[in-house]
Amino acid sequence: MKLIEYPDAEMMMIDLANVLAGELEQCLLSHDRASFAVPGGTTPGPIFDVLCGAKHIDWARVDVMLTDERRVPEDHERSNTRLIRERLLVDAAAAAHYVNYIPEDDAGLATKADALRPHLPVSVMLLGMGADMHTASIFPNSPDLDHALTTDQPLAFVQPPDGLEPRVTLSANVLKGAMSRHIVIKGADKRAALEAAQKVSPQEAPIAAVLAGSTVHWAEG
């Protein structure tokens, strides 16, 4: 794991957006297409705001996917898909192809997984981390934790321990297989969680499953 500290969050978001843009551009120099996995939530929005205007990227050759999503309609206020449609898949990045792997029902997961496989391994991945040390939708204390951590399938259904909407997540196998992986976190609480995660198992801290080989970007606030 490589840790990069920034003097403030604004600088971190701009610098990280530029790093991601550079990696996507570099990938496209040697591959026909690049896959780009991103999280939802509040943290990555400013990164998307910078990245979407990167006109030097051939966005028509980029396949964008979420690292996880709530099983809610796309226009729902808690939808990650809504977030990236409003803040990432706009401006120059509107030309990107969105890979929607959210099944309409439980029976559709295998079909969506098959459609996702041609986009793997993920070329460039951005992850977040909660103060509880979850990443994507792989949560400690979830009844689906072991399955999400160990399945060979690219997707997993997860019921979060908070009892809110069930989710679909990229499995730990897919997260670990990314060609380039960045984790972005803010605040003293998440820095403490990161340090704790390095000392325990993925069952206690799912983020621990992907720290090896990752670059972690942190700012105080």
Rank of each mutant, 00 (worst) to 15 (best):
N80H: 06
G128H: 08
K199E: 14
R167L: 08
D15K: 10
F139V: 04
P103N: 05
H31Q: 14
Q26N: 13
S214V: 00
K112A: 15
T81V: 15
R181A: 09
V72S: 10
H134V: 12
I185H: 11
D132H: 02
P103H: 09
A9K: 14
L145C: 01
A205I: 00
G213P: 00
F48Y: 15
D105H: 11
I183D: 11
P143R: 06
I185D: 02
M129H: 07
L127E: 09
A156Y: 07
A212M: 07
D162K: 04
R85M: 10
V168C: 06
S137I: 04
P202A: 01
V158H: 07
S142P: 02
A113H: 09
N18D: 13
R61M: 04
E23N: 10
D91K: 12
G221V: 08
M179D: 09
L109H: 05
L126N: 06
D91I: 00
M179H: 08
L211V: 03
W218D: 00
A205F: 01
F157I: 06
F139Y: 11
T111K: 11
S30K: 11
A110C: 05
A192K: 14
S201C: 03
F139M: 00
V200S: 03
P44H: 08
T215W: 01
R70I: 05
D146S: 12
S123C: 15
Q153K: 15
A37Q: 03
P7A: 14
K199V: 04
G221N: 13
P103Y: 10
S142L: 06
L145H: 01
K190S: 05
Y6G: 09
P166F: 01
D189V: 14
P206D: 06
Q198G: 10
H147Q: 05
G177M: 06
G213T: 01
D162W: 07
I138F: 03
G53T: 11
L28P: 02
Q159P: 02
M11Q: 15
F48V: 07
E165C: 12
V64I: 11
V38F: 04
S79F: 08
D146Y: 01
D132P: 06
P161D: 13
E77K: 10
I57T: 05
F48E: 12
L109K: 11
V90Q: 15
L66H: 01
G221Y: 06
R61Q: 13
M12Q: 13
